[in-house]
Design a protein around this nucleic acid. Structure first.
Lengths: 219, 219
DNA sequence: TAGATTGTTAATCGATTAACAATC
DNA sequence: TAGATTGTTAATCGATTAACAATC
């Protein structure tokens, strides 16, 4: 349970499950369900019952009623609060290549409490044009614009070679959290969070699974 | 250490580090480095030394020489073998929206041993056209084409509501490993691997980090 | 009350890190 | 030899799951 003002750290794993909870709870609210029990949530999401109870306890102030469950609306509010959803989380994206453009055009981030307000690219041909409704600025203006707009989230979608340099510039400009799509590990000060969206890692798991499958067939 | 023919299961975490190792080793090879020691790798990637030694032992047959290290070329070959890199890992993508198109256009998968050979979409307007050099087929032909081409990897980039249905069709068509970008948990038979590329989860970690930062400032 | 559900303490599991003998 | 590095066994850490008393 989190007491107001002194937030208990929520485990990384639990935070990663949070979007699944929020999504389900919003769906329940849509359908007019006002109360839900942990075992029901666990069944729907394929999680362990105890895990759900612990997650709810750590991510929400509201307690459940034995035999009944939790109030859906309360859980949603508490979880959104945990995400800092009610703050404006403005972000900039660096690297307007194919992946960068896809993220610019993806509408689903608002739901997660993130709003991409501008993009940057090294290529002068892209500069000052608009992509998916967001202006692309030349990379040289990164520091100035981030500082002025008070941006705290940076998204890196540049090639591996340029990633560290871009990362340094973002940190310099006051960014506190970085979502890194480049397949390299970034060096940052300890108080900056880097979240690696490691596509190659996912592919490694897929590939290895297949290799094992095929090796099973002819042992 | 993995003895040929009876592959020891490599931990999920280690597999996720594998792409970082391969990337670094390939870079070393480019530069003409033929031998590398575990502590050097650890320093470059920011990993723990023991972790690197254990990872190398589990992902590669080749042993290191005390005082010297490992032969770069051998490590690369063993790791590529672990990924099943030398097999052809053909994949299909379902859902040619903005994210789907980005993945179709992304050139970096070859390096990871994956090759997207076709795409599918529900929208008839897209059908039988070509996007980024890959033909988009109507979703109805998914089963037929996957079976005929012997596809074992499916990439799901459809909206959440359609994901389970698409997943079922892929499994039915013989797919063994699924890369799921939809923000829902999929139900599959136990021998099918689902790897969730959970963007919302990453964003949850970023958002929560920022919330904690801001709460620190005014306690 | 009886039975379902909660919240928490204890046990288990997997991964990481520390310690150390063996090797070149 | 001396010193760096390997490979492995033991200790630690964090997360998951099991067990159970408290509650409605």
């Amino acid at each position: 349970m989190r007491t107001t003002g002194s937030p208990t750290a929520i485990s990384k794993q639990a935070l990663q499950r949070l979007p699944y909870y929020i999504r389900l709870l919003r769906e329940l609210r849509e359908n007019g369900t006002t109360v839900v029990a942990a075992p029901a949530i666990a069944a729907r999401l394929g999680f362990n019952e105890v895990q759900v109870r612990k997650d709810l306890a750590s991510m929400s102030d509201s307690r459940g009623k034995p035999k009944a469950g939790f109030i859906v609306e309360e859980l949603i509010n508490n979880m959104e609060e945990t995400l800092g959803y009610h703050n404006s989380n403005d972000a900039v994206l660096v690297g307007a290549g194919s992946l960068g453009r896809a993220l610019l055009g993806y509408g689903g981030f608002g739901e997660c409490g993130i709003n991409i307000v501008a993009a940057f690219d090294r290529d002068p041909a892209l500069a000052d044009h608009s992509l998916c409704g967001k202006t692309v600025f030349p990379i040289e203006r990164l520091g100035e614009i981030c500082t002025r707009m008070g941006i705290h989230i940076g998204i890196i979608t540049v090639p591996a070679e340029a990633a560290q340099e871009v990362c340094d510039a973002l940190v310099e400009a006051g960014v506190l959290a970085i979502w890194n799509f480049a397949p390299v590990r970034l060096n940052v000060p300890t108080d900056i969070l880097v979240q690696n969206e490691n596509m190659a890692a996912s592919l490694a798991l897929l590939s290895n699974h297949l290799r094992d499958k095929f090796q099973e067939e002819r042992p």
